[in-house]
Write a protein that binds this DNA or RNA. Structure first.
Length: 501
DNA sequence: GTCGGAATAG
DNA sequence: CTATTCCGAC
């Protein structure tokens, strides 16, 4: 009851409202209201309100990270990100160190805030950290060893939780993303550097095992994932931001944005305040979920973008930089490490300096890393991180299934990569996507529902050239016919769907 | 400080 | 399921 604020405003869909609500929610509240109910609220400086005041809640969907199907409440990692996002909590918790790394400067306070949020007056850091530790196996977080109260997010995981629809793991984009998050030991992992490497990625790096992993029946968890998992990402409009590097294997100019509307490299990537509205002409009303699919496809290189209806295909945003929206106001994500960490090797990887060695196979350079990921190069013989070692035995590939994310990058071990490439994802993608599309104006969406032909080994397989396109962007014509074919197929699919319904 | 097992709550 | 609560071990 104490925290049951979710239904006050049944349908908050507009980002600004959400932002306001979020801000309010996180703003230190004056004592009073219902605070006394169950909150410890010993310290008065800052506390999160669990009050029922209207406008203080994210919309219901924002509190339903579908990564936790049963959960009706905000999840801890979610909450952590919230705090991280707010300046007022910088003294309590803040990004620090490597990309994705944050330090809990005031464990007690964080615990207290968490306790307030969850209405657990007796929350303390010990308990909170226990919860945090559960994330290790889920690979949402991992501990930065040797640094007190320091943890690190695995953003690819986070992102994928929210935008599994594109099955990033199997997409070239995600490979790129993965690079950042998955870390490589390549000395130069700046987005630009990485980007520059894509054109020469061998086929094998990208296409094979990503798709050919056998088949698994779509798991029941397939419908767990939704786009609304992450309020910061889906607060109302796609966060178009310039993708520093994610050009995928298609070296295009201009680059497209992060398909999931999230650019971890830009400040405020998670911010609730900096997501530009959907373009006026958008097919998808901004009052609802941002449609990652649309934004993705419209901005993707050929095979994808061409799937969109003519008007959309260009994304309209292929301007000089493909930047469709400006950004950010404040950094809620670790600052883009590129500048300060040119020498760094694990931008966004799950590893920290100390763990790098074990987290990244020696010699796993950029392309190698991709290859490893794509080919499942490391199959089981790799080293395990301590965390993995501990949990590894009993922590099977399914153990992180709660997230149902295909996470290439992963935080630590290669085994994880392997695990994360379970086919369950592939197989579930279609159904997942279908669910999503059906549920949200699928009619306007070309893409996914049409993409995965039921018989196709992989939904996106047919879209991704087996061989990397030639360095210079393929001619439009080259991608045109396939796309038309796909569109055609889409129509058929839609027809079938209609018939069935 | 950190870790993960176990029991338990919701 | 995700925590929460304890707790012993390191």
């Amino acid at each position: 009851m104490c925290c049951d604020i979710k239904h006050i405003i049944p349908h908050l869909h507009h980002s600004s409202v959400i932002q306001t609500a979020a801000a309010a929610l996180l703003r230190p509240q004056p004592p009073g209201e219902q605070r006394d109910k169950r909150q410890a609220s010993s310290s008065s400086s800052s506390s999160l309100s669990c009050s029922l005041r209207p406008g203080f809640a994210f919309p219901d969907w924002a509190y339903k990270p579908e990564s936790s199907p049963g959960s009706r409440q905000i999840q801890l990692w979610h909450f952590i990100l919230e705090l991280l996002q707010k300046e007022e909590y910088q003294g309590v918790i803040a990004w620090q160190g490597d990309y994705g790394e944050f330090v809990i400067k005031d464990p007690d306070e964080v615990a207290r805030l968490w306790g307030i949020r969850k209405c657990k007056p007796h929350m303390n850091y010990d308990k909170l950290s226990r919860a945090l530790r559960y994330y290790y196996n889920k690979r949402i977080l991992h501990k930065t060893k040797g640094k007190r109260f320091t943890y690190k997010f695995n953003f690819s995981k986070v992102v994928l939780v929210n935008y599994p629809i594109l099955d990033m793991a199997n997409s070239p984009f995600f490979l790129a993303q993965n690079h950042f998050n998955g870390g490589s030991t390549a000395p130069d992992c700046t987005p630009e550097a990485i980007q520059s490497l894509f054109p020469r990625l061998p086929d094998s790096s990208r296409g094979t095992s990503l798709f050919d992993r056998g088949t698994t029946a779509p798991g029941p968890e397939g419908d767990k994932l939704r786009l609304d998992t992450f309020p910061f990402l889906s607060s109302g409009a796609p966060c178009y931001s310039k993708p520093p590097s994610l050009l995928g294997p298609y070296p295009r100019n201009p680059p497209f944005d992060y398909p999931w509307g999230f650019n971890p490299y830009l400040p405020g990537a998670f911010s609730l305040n900096n997501c530009p509205k959907l373009p006026p002409g958008s097919l998808y009303p901004s009052q609802f979920y941002p449609n990652p699919l649309q934004s993705s496809l419209s901005q993707l290189p050929h095979p994808f973008s061409s799937l969109l209806p003519p008007g959309e295909a260009g994304g309209g945003e292929r301007g000089a930089n493909g930047t469709a929206g400006g950004q950010p106001t404040r950094p809620c994500l670790p600052p883009y490490p590129g500048g300060l960490s040119l020498g760094r090797t694990d931008i966004g990887s799950g590893a920290t300096l100390g763990e790098r060695v074990e987290d990244n196979p020696p010699g796993t350079g950029l392309s190698l890393g991709l290859g490893a990921v794509g080919l499942g190069a490391g199959t089981g013989a790799e080293r395990q991180s301590p965390t993995e070692r501990r949990g590894g035995v009993k922590q099977d590939p399914e153990s992180d299934s709660d997230l149902e994310i295909t996470d290439l990058s992963d935080c630590s071990s290669e085994n994880e990569n392997e695990h994360d490439f379970g086919l369950r994802k592939e197989s579930s993608l279609a159904s997942r996507s279908q669910i999503l599309l059906d549920g949200k104006k699928a009619s306007a969406l070309p893409p996914i529902s049409a993409l995965p032909p039921p018989v196709s080994p992989h939904p996106l397989k047919s879209l991704i050239p087996i061989t990397p396109p030639p360095p210079p962007p393929p001619s439009l014509a080259a991608s045109l016919s396939p796309s038309m074919a796909l569109r055609e197929r889409h129509r058929e699919t839609e027809s079938v769907k209609m018939m069935h319904s």
